[in-house]
């Protein structure tokens, strides 16, 4: 199996870099609408995230659902037009 690219990233909005206002982690973000968000992390960003660090004190079997500070940072960036949101 070959890993193929997602055409939506080429035809529609691309992934855009964004820093979390809380921890500075740099991720890539894409919003296809106000309601829909994609986030691509890398290892460096994962280790920078404070909420993530706090959560992995558990038994490790749980899934980290996401960082609320990053979520707000993305929302803010979307509201400010830093992250483009296609109007529907």
């Amino acid at each position: 199996m070959t890993v193929r690219p997602d055409d939506r990233l080429l035809d529609g909005a691309p992934m855009q870099p964004l820093c979390c206002r809380q921890c500075g982690a740099e991720v890539e973000v894409r919003k296809a609408s106000w309601h829909q968000t994609s986030v691509q992390w890398n290892a460096e960003a994962v280790s920078a995230c404070l909420e993530r660090r706090a959560s992995s004190l558990g038994d490790g079997s749980g899934v980290f659902p996401g960082c609320t500070a990053l979520r707000d940072s993305i929302a803010r960036a979307a509201l400010e037009g830093v992250i483009a949101v296609p109007e529907s």
Partner: peptide
């Protein structure tokens, strides 16, 4: 490869 295992999130919240 890193991209196979790096964290990716996709969220739809209506």
């Amino acid at each position: 490869k890193p991209e196979m295992v790096e964290r990716f999130e996709f969220e739809l919240d209506t």
